[in-house]
């Protein structure tokens, strides 16, 4: 049986897989990292977004074997060991950027890649366009966009702390 060796959230694992095993199956079923969700399984909804070597990808549309040797970050790997949330997670909490929460892990992972790729900051329109690959069936986009707009200021060092959400 083929084997995949990859580093997930800083921890290196070697796992037996089939040729057809998807990265998301490896993460959820072999490593029990169930924060990465499977929504549509057709690369449309973005609930399964993780980072592979720093790039956001849909983990339902990459073979586990294609990720061999790579560095993977999932939603479980964002907070510091002491529990301090990543600024994007903190912003999602502060701005109430979730309703049912199913799309949230993918939204957060996509949002971080988006912010990192736009060091000069994004307008609201650019944030909305950048989230094209993530669907929220609660249609709760408005606060997600606000959270990302606030988080980018912290992530780019233009603000020391997250701007509080309006009362």
């Amino acid at each position: 049986m083929p084997q995949v060796t990859l580093t997930v959230n800083g921890k290196t694992s070697t796992v037996d897989v089939e040729g057809r095993t998807l990265l998301v199956e490896l993460l959820r079923e072999k490593l029990r990292l169930t924060g990465t969700h499977v929504g549509c399984d057709t690369s449309q909804c973005g609930a399964c977004v993780v980072h592979v070597d720093g790039e956001s990808v849909k983990a339902c549309t990459i073979l586990a074997l294609q990720a061999n040797g790579s560095q993977v970050t999932t939603i479980e790997g964002l907070a510091k060991p002491d529990g301090t949330l990543h600024p994007m997670q903190e912003a999602f909490r502060e701005y109430h950027a979730l309703q049912c929460g199913f799309c949230t892990p993918g939204m957060v992972m996509s949002a971080i890649d988006l912010v990192e790729k736009h060091p000069d900051g994004m307008s609201e329109k650019e944030i909305r366009e950048g989230l094209e690959g993530n669907l929220c069936r609660c249609t709760g986009y408005h606060n997600i966009v606000k959270a990302i707009a606030a988080a980018q200021e912290v992530m780019h060092g233009r603000a020391q702390a997250l701007a509080p959400a309006a009362e």
Partner: peptide, 9 residues
Amino acid sequence: IGDTQVRNR
């Protein structure tokens, strides 16, 4: 083309 994640792959 596609979306951000599709363009990344």
